[in-house]
């Protein structure tokens, strides 16, 4: 069979067109492989929000070789809105215990910072959720990330197609960022853990309440771009009382009795997912982030403290996410 010059040109054009269409899907969308060789996760038992949290957390933090002496530590809890009786927010007593521990470890300063996603009146959320009283009592500075000074930051991944975001100066200038999520299911993204918690650093004054641009660009994609750009140094996840069902606001309280600490947000979220009875590989942002941000495989995670056993009954989810259940 002979190939004419015309056939060759048509074939070449078809090949070029095919490559143009498929290349964006095949090329990596992250700029840098940031994965550590190994990650460490500690699961701590804590049945209630009590004064003993200080000791439990301090003992847990000693399992990690953290040096924060002289550094500015930013604690980023999940503080979205307040609905009486709903386990929406990271409990303030856990945040206080973390602040106390980091101060004892020699931090230059400890700041609590959040940009609530639903409520424009940040002081109202702080007041109703008990944060205001706790932070005032311990003289801990709070920064409203919805209204902080903003700096234009190029994104270090391109899952959303956005090139940059305006992000709060306080977050970008912190030396050690601790994501402190509430372990919850989420009706749009399956789960909301340490990586999804980073939506709170996106300023509402610039992007609205909720941060709707991130929903339109894709929640999973936005999580990946954001976490590639703003590295989470440590995770303290509140699973003492978690949330299942129609999270992040209207789910049911689910007592889990655990605090999860980790030096890698991907390892933290994969472990939390297992504790919820989910298969982490089925959660898009965890699976994808394990390619460049951190480790999700148990083989690459040094597990200390309690074991990451799945619960007797997995966390309930909205019907679209039943495929997350590991069994």
């Amino acid at each position: 069979m002979s190939v004419t010059r015309r056939d060759f040109l048509i074939g070449s054009a078809a090949l070029a067109a095919g490559a143009t269409v498929t290349a964006p899907f095949l090329l990596p969308k992250y700029h840098l492989d940031q994965r550590p060789k190994r990650s460490r996760v500690a699961i701590l038992n804590a049945q209630q929000y009590s004064q003993q949290l200080d000791q439990i957390l301090a003992a847990g933090l000693r399992l990690f070789p953290i040096n924060i002496r002289g550094k500015t530590v930013l604690l980023k809890p999940n503080l979205v809105d307040y609905i009486p009786g709903n386990a929406i927010n990271t409990h303030p007593s856990l945040v206080l215990a973390a602040a106390e521990s980091f101060r004892r470890m020699g931090a230059k300063s400890v700041i609590v910072a959040e940009g609530p996603g639903h409520q424009r009146d940040t002081q109202l959320v702080l007041s109703q959720s008990g944060y205001e009283q706790c932070l005032r009592g311990e003289r801990i500075r709070f920064v409203d990330l919805n209204r902080d000074e903003l700096i234009r930051i190029p994104l270090r991944a391109s899952y959303t197609g956005m090139t940059h975001l305006w992000l709060p100066r306080t977050v970008l200038e912190a030396d050690f960022l601790v994501s402190m999520p509430k372990i919850k299911t989420h009706h749009w993204s399956g789960v909301t853990l340490s990586m999804k918690n980073m939506f709170g650093v996106v300023p509402g004054a610039r992007y609205g309440w909720p941060k709707n641009i991130l929903h339109w660009k894709g929640i999973q994609e936005s999580i990946l771009d954001l976490c590639a750009t703003v590295p989470v140094n440590f995770v303290i996840a509140d699973g003492i009382v978690a949330m299942e069902g129609n999270g992040p606001l209207n789910g049911s309280a689910r007592p889990l009795g655990k605090i999860v600490l980790a030096d890698d947000p991907v390892a933290a979220d994969a472990t939390c997912s297992r504790l919820m009875g989910f298969e982490p590989d089925r959660i898009v942002h965890i699976r994808e982030s394990a390619r460049f941000l951190g480790n999700a495989s148990p083989a690459l995670i040094d597990q200390v403290g309690e074991t990451a056993n799945a619960p007797a009954a997995p966390f309930q989810v909205v019907s679209e996410f039943r495929f997350l259940h590991a069994f």
Binding site: I83, D121, N246, N250
Partner: peptide, 17 residues
């Protein structure tokens, strides 16, 4: 609330502001 009154069958609570 911020935008809608009902999401996934659950009524959202109003915000004063």
């Amino acid at each position: 609330n911020a935008g809608n009154g009902t999401v996934y069958g659950a009524a959202l609570a109003p915000h004063a502001d």
